[in-house]
Amino acid sequence: MKYFILAIFICFSHFGFSQILNLQNSKIEKDSSLIKGNVTASLSMYNRSAAANEPVEFFGYNLKSSIALFLKNSRLAFINDFSYLKINEDPFLNTGFQHLRYSMFEDKRVHPEAFVQFQYDNFRGLFPRWIAGVGLRHDLVKTEDFSFFFSPGIMWEYEAWMIPNTEDEVKVSFLKSTNYIGFRWDVNEFLDINTINYYQTTYDSDAELWRNRYSIELNINSKITERLGINNSFTLSYEDEPIVPITQTIYNFTAGINYKF
């Protein structure tokens, strides 16, 4: 039991998994390059055995990447996030997503976006979640150092959840309203701050209730060199009516090294 409690602490100290994507987590701005991207990675490996005859070893990593292909007045972005934790020989935490987004007419202050996403979270019993949708992004303020934006949209979502402590699975699909608002501020050449807030909602006619999902993420990126930097991220997510009885509020803090190319 004590190892399970320690593992829970490690999970939420080192490996968070946001149910909602932060599009502003890694800054990729258009320049003369056709393809740009960045990678943020962190690694943990150690033991905390209290007794010689009870060895306990922990191994885990978090890997995030953002790659963008720039076309004329448009952008195709591929964003990934993976977290993994193994205790001795047993996988304990395995979460991640792959997100593909196409933004059109980015030279306009109002422009459409289309996206698809695959997601999983075995620790909370989610496998898989499929998302596909469209939105209309509004860049209310867009300068060289500061941007403020919001986007209303609509999406289809399919989820398969395992009911905790059972072998039963629940599968659902909904048409949802998906909306985000956020900003990015380049404080100086070494520091930038960004945050994004999501609100997604739908009416579940079978359960006769509204299902609402909220999320906020704050990122602070510090540049060490032209290609290396440090990323600090805090995420808080809340679902008022989860599909299965799981924790409604989850939060996490992560820190890692970022490499741009």
Results as ranks from 00 to 15, higher is better:
residue 115 F to A: 04
residue 135 G to I: 00
residue 57 E to I: 08
residue 208 E to V: 13
residue 67 I to V: 15
residue 242 P to S: 07
residue 154 I to G: 15
residue 184 R to V: 11
residue 250 I to E: 10
residue 234 F to M: 11
residue 199 Y to M: 06
residue 176 K to L: 06
residue 129 R to Q: 15
residue 26 S to T: 10
residue 211 R to D: 07
residue 256 G to S: 08
residue 256 G to P: 03
residue 216 I to R: 10
residue 136 L to T: 05
residue 175 L to W: 05
residue 243 I to P: 02
residue 168 D to C: 01
residue 114 A to Q: 00
residue 97 F to W: 14
residue 70 F to E: 04
residue 239 E to W: 04
residue 157 E to N: 06
residue 139 D to V: 00
residue 68 A to M: 11
residue 176 K to F: 00
residue 141 V to Y: 05
residue 261 F to T: 07
residue 56 V to N: 12
residue 39 V to A: 15
residue 132 A to H: 03
residue 238 Y to C: 10
residue 255 A to M: 08
residue 125 G to P: 00
residue 84 Y to F: 13
residue 168 D to R: 07
residue 124 R to T: 05
residue 135 G to F: 01
residue 198 Y to W: 13
residue 155 M to H: 10
residue 226 E to G: 14
residue 179 N to W: 01
residue 6 L to N: 13
residue 206 D to W: 07
residue 197 N to P: 01
residue 103 S to M: 04
residue 28 I to N: 07
residue 100 L to G: 01
residue 244 V to Q: 03
residue 172 V to C: 02
residue 88 N to L: 05
residue 18 S to L: 03
residue 118 F to G: 09
residue 83 S to Y: 03
residue 92 F to R: 06
residue 245 P to Q: 05
residue 141 V to K: 05
residue 193 I to T: 05
residue 80 N to R: 11
residue 233 S to Y: 09
